[in-house]
Computed example of a mutant assay.
Amino acid sequence: MPEPENPPVRGLTIKQPWAWAITAGKNVENRTWKVPRKCIGVTLLVHAGLKPARDAFLDERILTLPAMPPVLATGAVLAIARLAGCHPEDGGCCAPWGDPGAFHWQLEDVRPLPEPVTYTGALSLWKPSFALLQKVQAL
């Protein structure tokens, strides 16, 4: 029987520039679905998806962050964070990053990686391979 993960690690694929924004200070990820209770407290690999959220580049909140790099990594893990909590939006909570009508995934202890680690992400919360975890740990 394999040893259980301690602590568990999951990946979350996020469109650019939102994945980069997490490395630059965004502490809430907005989703249409609630985090499973068993995933609160997990270590989260912040993965930049291949396709950008084009409208996000004009979002005023992005402009409050430090200057965006001229090229944003895609298809790669950019940071490690702790998934601290999740709650439905409640009257403007989690400003400025929480969107109305969304579940607010609270991120803490965000640590950008010194360099992106190329990897194929997935929908929902995904379990990273042992090889990916080794690459991330080596940085």
Rank of each mutant, 00 (worst) to 15 (best):
P96I: 04
P52C: 07
L132E: 05
G92Q: 09
A48F: 03
Q134H: 13
G121Y: 03
I22F: 01
D99G: 14
P66D: 06
V35Q: 02
L139W: 07
P70S: 05
G101F: 10
P88V: 02
P88F: 06
P114K: 04
L65D: 06
L123T: 06
G25N: 09
G11H: 08
K135V: 15
V42I: 10
A131L: 12
G101M: 07
V77Q: 00
L133Y: 12
L78F: 05
T120N: 15
V117K: 01
L72P: 02
G92L: 00
V71K: 14
P36N: 01
I80A: 08
K15C: 13
L139G: 04
A19D: 04
F130Q: 07
R31F: 00
W97T: 00
N30T: 04
R111M: 06
E5K: 11
E60N: 13
P116E: 12
C94A: 05
A84N: 01
R54T: 12
L12N: 01
W33D: 05
F130L: 13
C86T: 05
G11R: 04
K34E: 13
A21W: 01
W126I: 03
N27M: 13
R111S: 07
A21G: 03
H87R: 07
C94P: 01
R31H: 11
P69T: 02
L63W: 14
R61I: 14
